[in-house]
């Protein structure tokens, strides 16, 4: 009876089976991880974007040049808002033909004009989704007029 008891190897087989299954699981998980790192460069794309930009230099230059133009100031002084709106739309169309800054984000420039507290012009070239951030805002005050340019972008942030 002692011999038959000692000849049983079920406990050893139990240990081995546990390790076999554990090995298979470990190898599977490691393989997935290594493949993910090796084959998917986009997952680990380390391209840097400047997320914390508050102003856009080229936009500011465009807008200040636009307002330096006596022709545009005269239109504004004559309160010809429809003509001014046409000129602003032309400006927006050339400010960034390849907006946004990267291929992964889309957006556009918008404009508002207030005479005192009354809104005279509102140009929205981008349909904003809910909870969008207003980026690169520039405000100008010309006597009683307030002009506001800003960008709106999909993907949460303009870059």
């Amino acid at each position: 009876m002692q011999n038959s008891f000692l000849n049983t190897k079920k406990a050893q087989v139990g240990d081995t089976m546990t390790w076999l299954v554990a090995t298979l699981i470990i190898v599977f998980v490691i393989t997935i991880s290594v493949l993910a790192v090796s084959i998917s460069p986009k997952l680990f794309d380390k391209q840097i974007y400047l997320d914390d930009k508050k102003k856009d230099l080229l936009a500011a230059k465009s807008i200040s040049g636009f307002l330096e133009n006596k022709k545009n100031v005269d239109i504004l002084n004559k309160r010809d808002y429809s003509k001014f709106e046409v000129e602003v739309k032309k400006l927006i169309s050339v400010m960034y033909p390849y907006f946004p800054f990267t291929k992964d984000f889309s957006g556009a420039w918008n404009f508002e004009l207030y005479e005192g507290e009354e809104q005279r012009i509102r140009i929205l070239t981008y349909s904003p989704p809910i909870n969008i951030n207003l980026e690169f805002e520039s405000k100008f005050v010309l006597e009683n007029d307030k002009l506001r340019f800003w960008a709106e972008c999909s993907g949460g942030r303009c870059k």
Binding site: K61, S62, G65, N69, V94, M95
Partner: peptide, 22 residues
């Protein structure tokens, strides 16, 4: 690459011309 443009005014004799700098 980066491709951008902006509006500017350039001297054209006594007047100023509107140009786009790309």
């Amino acid at each position: 690459y980066s491709l951008k443009s902006f509006y500017s005014l350039a001297k054209d004799g006594d007047s100023e011309k509107e140009i786009v700098v790309k």
